[in-house]
Write a protein that binds this DNA or RNA. Structure first.
Lengths: 353, 353
DNA sequence: CTTGGCACTCGGGAGCAAGGAGTGCCAGTC
DNA sequence: GACTGGCACTCCTTGCTCCCGAGTGCCAAG
């Protein structure tokens, strides 16, 4: 259906259009690529490509522009991911290895990716649900107040304040709870802390609720209100934070491209966590870069943008996704190379810290 | 120099131009405001205002537009801050009181302010240097690794990983350090934790370094490497985090305004922490809303934007600044009202948690 | 199947005229 | 002396036509 030369023509059209941002005509094609045939022949090929929906012309008497379908074919069959230069790799490595906590890793990653691709970068925080408990800490901060700190193996630290009722109030408090004036004694807290850590150490966050159902039965009646309060906040933390955090950088790069009128839509999408999540898409084949082109995106306002994304994680464990958002008219091979490289390095950094 | 009527004319010009975004002429003025005089009189007044530099005309035969100087006079003498409606106040209160940690407070605040003003909101995280230590926690997370958690009275939580050399290595290690196989025993950590907390509790962060200079002398020789490692990381944390974090939201609102060509400059500024810091400006009179108009801004790319900012804090203590960035053609009274209100509520929320 | 030639189609830019908004100025009035 | 109506003037904006050029589609010939 499409012989080799027609594919070569399509590839040439995509490459030329990406670099010049102008509809490309048959003459320009034969000039810039030595295809060995005359413009007239190219015209015939282009007519076929247009009929099949791979290219289109903005108006009669203008050159051709790839359609989403054309870009798709280009990405799938006509191009290979372009690896980064040695200098770029080294820059990534040194830049990322200077980070000292998770916020910093994510922040540096997103800025790096934006600068590397000259587009908008998006990075999702490592998922809570896929990581496991490394440590739980309880810290008294004031009268009747505790701070719960949850540390995961991915370096994420969650903190929440717990209000502990003075004593006797609440639902299931036994009569003996009133015998002691203060249930927040150092011993009670220490006991509970030890208990939590032995119960939960190394456990996946998804398994925490089941592991803790009978926690109140494992403590003395005195400590029961405290345990109940801690338990409820802990579970709440796991649920609340399930909605994952996501950040972006490089919005200024959008202004460089000519985004017709939809720039506003893109900015709106960037500020809506939910939309961004959907854009990055589901976790796919690990270590595979995925591309969503134009109308393949779930969002209506982003009809003319593409998303290049990949999973990242440590070892076999996928933690989250990161990617790049730009115009459909994008240098896919380079962008895919940058995304893949950054995803790998982030995994390494997270594994090392 | 400028009689009352001329001031009224200037006020009317600013108000009309803000709402219509079109140069305003003498006819339109007499139609929309009953100034009690004819267009011809207004024209004379406008000629004077223009001569003095308060207004200008884009081209002959167009209406007048306020200059930065004109806006300045308007803000300083011709307008009063417009308080929010009851419904708006209530919305702020309920929206902010749902927050559960500092990140969430700041995140909600910036989104709220952006939505309220329909512009770009900027919020600086509460300054570390101005807050005080509420608690220090040490948590062993792995062989030879500790997590240091620093909790401040403003709800900020800083965490850093500490690598503790196994034993004997490092500079000042005495020979006796080798007698014990593991300096990270529970007792050592507990001891150091207690020591840190008694030394630092309630101390301003700026005073931490001096309070800790002789920490190594207060512990047993065994614990000295540990203490030194913790100390150095703690001090480093205070220094590093001095460069304060700042976030923005509402970039999509920029697309609504017609920002000539400088949209890119604005986006660049928003992504540069340093520039944003400078824009918000120095802490001024507490509880006073400050306005920077157009060229009064330090940044060249923001010649046509204004910044409305205010301090926020708990009680008399100023913690940081927040504000709004928009075109010079902005509804100053309403924006100032929103900024002031949000700053107050954030203070209350921070005081309560 | 490829090629050169040729007529055709549009979009974009230049040039021009009409329309309109707004000003500045002047002489007259209260 | 301050305000007002009138009037000429400026210059932006809009709509229009015309022309040019890039690029195509088709056809007949190699």
């Amino acid at each position: 259906m499409l012989d080799d030369r027609k594919l070569a023509v399509l590839r040439a059209i995509v490459e030329d259009f990406v670099s010049t941002n102008e509809p490309v005509g048959s003459k320009a094609l034969t000039d810039r690529h030595n295809l060995g045939v005359s413009p007239a022949t190219i015209r015939n090929d282009m007519a076929v490509l247009e009929e099949q929906g791979y290219i289109t012309q903005p108006h009669t008497s203008a050159g051709r522009v790839p359609t989403d379908k054309g870009y798709r074919l280009f990405v799938d069959r006509l191009s290979t991911i372009k690896p980064l230069s040695v200098a770029e790799r080294r820059a990534i490595e040194t830049f990322l290895s200077g980070a000292y906590d998770l916020d910093d890793v994510v922040g540096r990653t997103v800025r790096l990716l934006a600068q590397l691709t000259r587009q908008v970068a998006v990075v999702q925080y490592p998922s809570l649900t896929r990581s496991s408990v490394r440590h739980v800490e309880l810290v008294p901060v004031a009268e009747g107040r505790l701070l719960l700190v949850l540390i995961t193996n991915t370096g994420r630290v969650e903190q929440r304040v717990i209000d502990v009722p003075p004593h006797g109030s609440g639902g299931s408090g036994g009569p003996s709870a009133q015998s002691k004036p203060d249930a927040l004694s150092e011993e009670s807290i220490g006991h509970l802390r030890a208990l939590l850590n032995t119960c939960l150490d190394g456990l996946g966050l998804g398994d925490v609720p089941t592991a803790l159902v009978d926690l109140p039965n494992k403590v003395t009646p005195d400590e029961r209100p405290l345990a109940a309060a801690v338990l409820s906040v802990l579970l709440e933390t796991l649920v609340d934070k399930h909605e994952e955090k996501i950040v972006f950088a490089g919005a200024a790069n959008l202004a460089a491209v000519d985004f017709s009128q939809s720039l506003r839509d893109v900015l709106v999408a960037l500020e809506e966590q939910v939309i961004l999540m959907r854009l990055l898409g589901e976790t796919g084949d690990s270590s595979k870069v995925t591309v969503r082109i134009g109308t393949e995106n779930p969002d209506l306002g982003l009809r003319s943008t593409s998303v290049v994304a990949a999973d990242y994680g440590v070892g076999d464990l996928t933690l989250a996704r990161l990617g790049v958002l730009g115009p459909t008219r994008m240098d896919y091979p380079s962008t895919m190379g940058a995304v893949r490289a950054v995803a790998r390095y982030v995994g390494q950094i997270l594994a090392g810290s």
